[in-house]
Design a protein around this nucleic acid. Structure first.
Lengths: 304, 304
DNA sequence: CTTCTTGTTTTGTCCTAGACAACAAGGACG
DNA sequence: CGTCCTTGTTGTCTAGGACAAAACAAGAAG
């Protein structure tokens, strides 16, 4: 009983591949080939689930499922990122220091990581800490996860510890809200919160009034929240992993349920490759977020 | 265009009802009845999505879908919780004070809420703060959400602010790990993290070494993490909203992938009504969690 | 040699409709 | 009044078919 078998729902949960896709691949490519239980339902052995997870990871890097499934399992692990990474390690400065921080995570030494980050925060100040430490670190972790040198749980640990640092830093900021009211959240299915926290830190530094609603808000609820809080700006975060095809439609629907005078900003790695939109302002870098905030103030303050 | 129409995927995202269920209800009960686009695909008007969300909420309270769909929409809002709530407000003490805190959330006054909670934390100390303030407050919010007096976004705001308070409090604890190594996380689809944080706070107070991995870890990854961190205990949280039928199977599968010497603890409102399990220890209250920790130490320390 | 445009293949999602197991409710019986 | 059993109710699985959107490949034009 060392190889527990998973039903199709469990495989969907664990791999992120929908039931439809799993059945379709079986039909088309002949993989995966689960055995069946007494009732004729699929039972996936753990070994196939692992291969599926690997395939999913490579797909997120731009490989195509047809090729991946045709590749023998042994060669799969040797595949490297295929998607263009021109911006990779665009911060040669301090790469060594960042590597040290990542090494601490890799060694599962939570305490040492926290301490090292606290020191950096104290040394750099919150703004530079976010822009020069947290942001590149997050990107590096993403890359390392993609090329397989970080396990999922190591990424989770990194995220959890870093979230704490940022939230703690935000909490200690003096609250002198003078700027716009910014509602920060993400749509359902989008669980990544680090980007939101980074933006919140920068905005809070600028004196904006941030209303953090966490992740995964249903669209209609975002509309209600914007109204109830009289938000000036609704800021959404889309991670690189979010299915890009859905984003334009989501923004359009959201625009319809938002109050007219509320601005809609969409940011994160997920919107970098999205065509410009009439429904929302697309923000691809932290610097741009800050400058958009300044622009907003420039547009609004003189008028009122 | 004030009534945007949702495709079936959007409705699934926003209501939490699976595509299969949506199509099944249409077949069986004749509701919802979406119109179709040029391509024959379902288009749900916002009005039906709202009714579906309401139905989902009432279902989570124990009502049955067949009855709910037969009920005319006007009467739906009048329905009250049906599930037995014997433990409701079992803390008559201080109910007034808790109500004040909830009122602050209801007024969307984040700053005042945070300040009031900080004061309570300072006054009560972390242990009593968790047990006498955060826990009952969380339960009250759950009840208020169920009976409709709290909006989704108000619950999100409460959760987000309370998470921050707890994490901040945990971070300031002196780290003198003398107890077991406890890995804290939840399974995929389970996003509620407040329960984990409460337990982490209590365990950290007792000197246990907590490894917070956030939520939504794939089962096989939990196994790897437990091994990598040499966890003595893997603690999972299941909220009341988690589909209970799946829990025993999950625990069984997880038990198979965990190292044999790692204990598996499952806690939260979701396990309260689950039959006792050979695979995991079921923990239904915070007090029980603390006493289990003491038991573990009693069992282990003398032996080693 | 690059860039744009046009077919062609790949791939995911949606569709219908049937079957059945797990659960809840209601009734019979001790 | 509790316990067992029958009878609904409900969700999830199965099967294959269809189609549109995205990715690729190839050719044309600059």
């Amino acid at each position: 009983m060392n190889t527990p078998s998973f039903n199709i729902a469990a495989v969907e949960r664990d791999t992120g591949l929908s039931k439809d896709v799993l059945r379709m691949w079986e039909r088309r490519y002949g993989f995966p080939v689960p055995s069946r239980d007494n009732h004729g339902e699929r039972c996936y052995p753990a070994e196939q689930v692992d291969r599926l997870r690997l395939i999913k990871r490579l797909m997120d890097q731009g490989h195509r499922p047809g090729k991946l499934i045709a590749t023998p399992p042994d060669e799969l692990t040797a595949l490297t990122p295929r998607r263009s990474k021109p911006a990779m390690s665009s911060m040669p400065v301090e790469t060594g220091e960042l590597e040290e921080l990542l090494a601490l995570i890799k060694q599962h030494d939570a305490a040492a990581y926290q301490q090292a980050m606290q020191q950096r925060l104290a040394r750099q100040g919150l703004q530079r800490f976010v822009q020069d430490t947290v942001a590149p670190l997050t990107q590096q972790v993403g890359e390392k996860w993609e090329d397989g040198s970080f396990e999922v749980f190591e990424e989770h640990l990194f995220t959890e510890l870093t979230k704490r640092l940022l939230r703690q830093a935000i909490a200690t900021l003096p609250g002198g809200p003078r700027g716009p009211r910014v509602l920060l959240t993400s749509v359902p299915e989008e669980t990544h919160v680090l980007g939101l926290l980074m933006v919140e830190a920068l905005f809070a530094l600028e004196g904006a009034e941030c209303i953090p609603l966490g992740t995964q808000m249903p669209l209609l609820e975002i509309g209600r929240a914007a109204e109830a809080h009289q938000a000036d700006i609704v800021a959404l975060s889309f991670s690189a992993a979010f299915p890009q095809r859905q984003i334009p439609g989501l923004l359009q629907q959201l625009r319809l349920v938002l109050p007219k005078n509320a601005a809609l900003w969409a940011g994160g790695a997920g919107v970098a490759r999205i065509a410009q939109s009439d429904d929302a302002a697309l923000i691809t870098t932290l610097e741009q977020a800050v400058s958009e905030l300044a622009d907003w103030r420039g547009r609004t303050a003189p008028g009122s």
